[in-house]
Amino acid sequence: MKVEPDQKVRINVKVNGVLHEAEVEPRKLLVDFLRDDLGLTGTKVGCDTTTCGACTILLDGRSVKSCTLLAVQAHGREITTIEGLSSDSKLSPVQEAFKDNFALQCGFCTAGMIVQATFLLSQKKDMTEEEIRDSIHGNICRCTGYQNIVNAIMDASRRMKA
């Protein structure tokens, strides 16, 4: 498809179970579409080099950095953001575990961390500490020193098995 400058493209995306039809500029980043167009500000932007993982979401069930995809690339696909991981009355096991293990301080990395952890645990239930550390190395936290985050993910894995 050829798009002229300033021309917008129509996309259909299902986000947290709700179908959205929208017109977007082809260059619009997915994270900006989620935050600015849909108002889903739970997903954060921490960098401009695909380094920090604050923007992590699930795209068709796989974790991706939404700052590094265009909104148009989400056309016809399903997205889950941090807002979609819990119903208002009930937190997910990962969310619970983050609270119980003091796995957050300023909270800015937390959405990305929880989404990434949710993805990891959907792939593999039993992970060693080293595996967990390896699998979250694309998510930077400046506050916690990671130990409590790693503990929370191990705790969540136990909760999901129980």
Partner: peptide
């Protein structure tokens, strides 16, 4: 080690940093 009072908003994506203000 009392649990932090206001974690819910952070773990559910309802936190509001300055760029999140509508």
């Amino acid at each position: 080690s009392v649990k932090r009072l206001y974690d819910d908003k952070f773990v559910t994506g309802r936190s509001t940093y300055v760029d999140d203000l509508k």
